[in-house]
C-alpha cells in the first residue's frame, strides 16, 4: 500500500495554513492511490495538536521531545530521516516555508530521494504499469509554468508553495502513534537562541483603506516622492515590495508580502511591481487591485482588477493631477 506523509509545522503555538493545505492534498492523493495517509508532528507537549489534526489523517505520528520545542531544521532532519527510513513512504510533503527550505532538500539528499521544491501542482498519473508523479513549478518568478518529472524510484519528496492548494477539514479518525526519537537533545551544531519580533513603525499599513505600493520599477530613491504624492491625493499610505526595503528606501514595516505584512485594503495600487508570489501573498485579498506596469506579461495583471500597461513615469504624475481635479470638482 502506498504511504503518503505530510509534515505539520507549528511555531509558537500556531499551525500555518500551508500545513492544513498539505494535509488536504496528502489525504486526497492517498485516497486516489488507495494508500494510507500519515501526518507528522514533531514538538514538545504537542498532544493538543495531534488531537486537532486527528481528523485529517489515517495516522498521526507524534515525536514529543523537549528539544523539539522550537522547529530546528537540523534536529528535524535527524528525527524525520529515521522515520522515513523505517516507513519508506512513496511521497513526503513538506511546506516550502522558511523551515521547509532548510529542511527538505537536505533531508531528501541524505536519504537519496528525488525532490522538487516550491511546487504548485501535484499529479499522480496512472500509466498502467507504474504510477507517474508529475509536479508543476513556476520558474522565472511566475512568468512560466513547468511540468517536472522525477527519476525512477520508489520514494519522492515535494515541497509545496503556501496557498497553492485549498484546505478542507478531513473526516477521518486518525490513530495517534507515539514515535521514539533517535536522539535525546538537539545536535550541538545548531542551537536555538531566540526570536526577534518584526519592528513596529509609525504607520500601520494593515489598517489603511488605500495602499499605494511601489516596486523596483521606480528605479531611483529620488522618484519615491511621485508615489507619496499619489498616495496623498488618495488619502492613502505608501507601501512597497521587498527590493525597496532591501535598498533602504522605506522601512521594513512598509513591505507587503510573505516576509512582510498582509494587507486587505479597499484599494491596492501596485506600481512597478512584477507580482512575484511572495508579494501576491500579502495583497491578493484587497477589494480592488490596480496595477501599473510597462510589461504586459507581468504576473501582477493576473491578480489585478484594473491595469495600465505603460511607463509609470508617464502615468503616475498625470493620474495624481486627474485625481486632484476630480476631487476638487
Amino acid at each position: 500500500m502506498k504511504k503518503i506523509f505530510s509534515l505539520v509545522e507549528h511555531r509558537r503555538g500556531e499551525i500555518p495554513d500551508v500545513s492544513y493545505e498539505l494535509l488536504t492534498k496528502g489525504r486526497e492523493l492517498a485516497k486516489q492511490e488507495n494508500g494510507e495517509f500519515t501526518a507528522l508532528v514533531l514538538g514538545h507537549n504537542v498532544k493538543e495538536f495531534a488531537e486537532k489534526i486527528k481528523k485529517e489523517a489515517d495516522r498521526v505520528f507524534v515525536v514529543d521531545k523537549e528539544f523539539l520545542k522550537e522547529p530546528n531544521a537540523e534536529a528535524y532532519q535527524i528525527v524525520l530521516s529515521d522515520i522515513l527510513k523505517k516507513e519508506s513512504p512513496f511521497l513526503t510533503l513538506i511546506g516550502h516555508t522558511a523551515l521547509g527550505m532548510d529542511l527538505a532538500s537536505s533531508l531528501a539528499t541524505s536519504l537519496n530521494i528525488p525532490i522538487a521544491t516550491d511546487c504548485v501542482g501535484i499529479d499522480i498519473e496512472d500509466t498502467g504499469k507504474m504510477p507517474v508523479l508529475l509536479v508543476t513549478r513556476q520558474p522565472y518568478n511566475g512568468k512560466l509554468n513547468a511540468k517536472v518529472s522525477f527519476a525512477a524510484g520508489s520514494q519522492f519528496m515535494i515541497t509545496v508553495r503556501q496557498g497553492a492548494f485549498t484546505s478542507e477539514q478531513g473526516n477521518l479518525s486518525g490513530k495517534i502513534i507515539d514515535i521514539a526519537s533517535p536522539i535525546e537533545k538537539e545536535p550541538d551544531y545548531r542551537k536555538f537562541i531566540e526570536y526577534i519580533e518584526a519592528v513596529v513603525g509609525a504607520v500601520d499599513i494593515t489598517q489603511a483603506e488605500v495602499v499605494v505600493a511601489v516596486g523596483r520599477g521606480i528605479k531611483e530613491k529620488e522618484n519615491m516622492s511621485l508615489i507619496e504624492e499619489l498616495a496623498n491625493s488618495l488619502g492613502g499610505v505608501v507601501a512597497c515590495s521587498r527590493p525597496i526595503v532591501d535598498a533602504d528606501w522605506l522601512p521594513k514595516d512598509r513591505q507587503v508580502g510573505s516576509s512582510g505584512k498582509i494587507v486587505k485594503p479597499k484599494l491596492y495600487i501596485a506600481i512597478g511591481i512584477s507580482g512575484a508570489f511572495q508579494h501576491i501573498m500579502g495583497m491578493k485579498n484587497a477589494d480592488t487591485i490596480v496595477a501599473i506596469n510597462k510589461d504586459p506579461n507581468a504576473p501582477i495583471f493576473n491578480e489585478a482588477d484594473y491595469g495600465i500597461v505603460d511607463d509609470l513615469f508617464k502615468v503616475v504624475p498625470v493620474l495624481k493631477n486627474k485625481i486632484k481635479e476630480l476631487k476638487a470638482s
Binding site: I193, I196, A198
Partner: peptide
C-alpha cells in the same frame, strides 16, 4: 528570516 517579518536567532558551528 521567517514568515511575517519574524526573525529566528541561532548558533551554528
Amino acid at each position: 528570516e521567517l514568515e511575517g517579518g519574524l526573525t529566528e536567532v541561532f548558533d551554528i558551528k
